[in-house]
Design a protein around this nucleic acid. Structure first.
Lengths: 319, 319
DNA sequence: CTGAAAGCGCTTACAG
DNA sequence: CTGAAAGCGCTTACAG
């Protein structure tokens, strides 16, 4: 075909806003160019950022995602899975709340590619999760370099598997006798607990690590009330996404990057590429206080690209 | 066909887990049995519950939803709209943050059914939103019946269109001189503000209304510190979903029911049924303190069924 | 290299 | 009432 003819066809096609019919193509290729995201977190605080990363990674390939909020309800989850199978999704992304928490329904019998995110998954499953242990180790190392020797960890509710896991990760990094306090995810609890610490303890902590941002906000308020300067006298660090409070180190599980990496693994599986089963633990972003963080997770997403399961060089640690 | 043959076919079909191929059907019917949900709230705190209601309403019809998080970014939103058009969605649900806030991109030129939720939409658009004014009127009426005459409203951040709108709705219901305080959505702000009120004001309020649950939690803490009993001395009410704090009246915009109603309207439009343009304001759920609220929004969804735009009897108020 | 035919899995309208 | 044919919009393999 003559190049100018080709160009003319292209031009007229775009003038008419011609869109090749995906259903027709799907019928032939036996692919729907669609994946399902089954969210097991009731509020979407995890699956929402994950879904953003997933969309970012799949949009260019023309793959769209069905987001299904299943919460903890197995019946709802099953209905959604049925609907997705009816729609012939090419693969499934299962998003939970904690690496150790199994998903409410068993998905191992499904005859399609499945990738788990922050969810236990079957023994031979493919699981993506943030490496919280590494985040604590790195943060505590930085703190030690800055002369901080006595960290305390405000974990949040002990009822939450995710919080307990995170507390374990802290202990593994800080030592098994490191103080961990359980309570709630709330500003008031963080404030109350730090207030109590500064009233009663003789050896005051020189670093306060928190399981979630509201706790850190409360801690900051209490420290201010006690005339403690942050970070000059006491360092504060917290797990969380979004903007950290001022003067606080953020350990960001970088859920968007996690979602993007998991989606890429799923696309590879859909494309018949073998993906080795295992737990892919991706590094968290550590944002020191005052660091310009308006680049969002852009940089980190790049990092993960270089570490996608398909690329064995510099792959993330597989537990 | 003999009934027993019919039965045998059915049985074998289900034994083989036969699923009629949606793409083939879509190719013929020129429908994809898919709708798009374009979410303009950055954190999903609105679009997430809305999406649950949407899924609930569409699942039975075999319609699935593409959830697209566009945040406030017009570029991302446009990309998602492109992807949805490529996927030939049958209709679009646009979810914003406030009735008066226009969506970042113009969608009025789209040649497919569009329904707006908590988003301004074009003049001849179809818009669904919770009736916050009515919720305030009803709550304040209940409070007056209980002898409360001096409400104060802790609005949250004045930068948020949604918070300003809500504050206007409060003033419209409580009187234009009713006290409104702006600050943040946080426990600490609620606590601080109530603390300040109880230290300085001579005519103390006898009812504290809040724009969001964390504010109410802070208010409760401050009232407790001042030895004020709730609700015996002072009534507390707040906007929010999920479980309200104890002794607090909840004004729940019932976003699931809103999503379900909007989805039904969209399905009607897709099914060629005329839906009258306008603003459909759905009543909020008012949950008095101590009311068993583990029925979630089940009841309210029923209510809305009876008020869907297709059913003109008892239709919601159209502004 | 170009162009017509066959077929993906359904549904719908039309003969028998 | 039953059964075969045509066609939805593409792609892919195959003649010309």
């Amino acid at each position: 075909m003559a190049p100018e003819t080709r160009e003319r066809v292209r031009r007229i096609a775009s003038e008419l806003e011609f869109r090749p019919n995906v259903m027709a193509r799907a019928l032939l290729s036996r692919r729907s160019f669609t994946i399902g995201l089954l969210a097991g977190d009731p509020d979407g605080s995890i699956s929402m950022p994950v879904a953003r990363g997933v969309a970012e990674a799949t949009l260019a390939d023309g793959v769209s995602v069905f987001y299904c909020a299943a919460s903890h309800d197995p019946t709802v989850a099953r209905k959604h899975v049925e609907a997705m199978l009816d729609k012939h999704v090419d693969g499934l992304l299962v998003v939970g709340e904690a690496l150790e928490a199994p998903f409410p329904i068993d998905l191992s019998a499904l005859a399609l590619p499945v990738v788990h995110v922050l969810s236990a998954g079957p023994p031979d499953g493919i699981v993506f999760a943030p490496d919280e242990g590494e985040a604590f180790r790195r943060t505590l190392q930085d703190l030690r370099t800055a002369g901080r020797q006595r960290p305390v960890y405000l974990a949040g509710p002990s009822e939450s598997v995710a919080c307990r896991q995170r507390a374990l990760a802290f202990r593994a990094a800080a030592g098994w006798d490191a103080p961990v306090l359980f309570g709630a995810v709330s500003e008031l609890w963080g404030r109350m607990e730090v207030d109590r610490l500064w009233q009663s303890v003789e050896h005051l902590p020189d670093a306060v690590l928190c399981g979630a941002t509201p706790i850190a906000q409360g801690a900051l308020a209490a420290l201010a009330e006690h005339g403690v300067r942050v970070p000059a006298d006491v360092a504060v660090a917290t797990f969380g996404d979004g903007d950290p409070p001022p003067h606080v180190t953020l350990m960001d599980p970088d859920l968007e990057a996690l979602g993007a990496a998991a989606a890429r693994a799923l696309l590879e599986m859909i494309g018949e590429t073998e993906v080795r089963p295992g737990r892919y633990l991706l590094p968290c972003r550590i944002v020191p206080p005052g660091a310009a963080c308006n680049t969002a997770s852009g940089g980190a997403v790049q990092d993960v690209t270089a570490r996608s399961p398909g690329d064995r060089r510099g792959a993330p640690s597989v537990a």
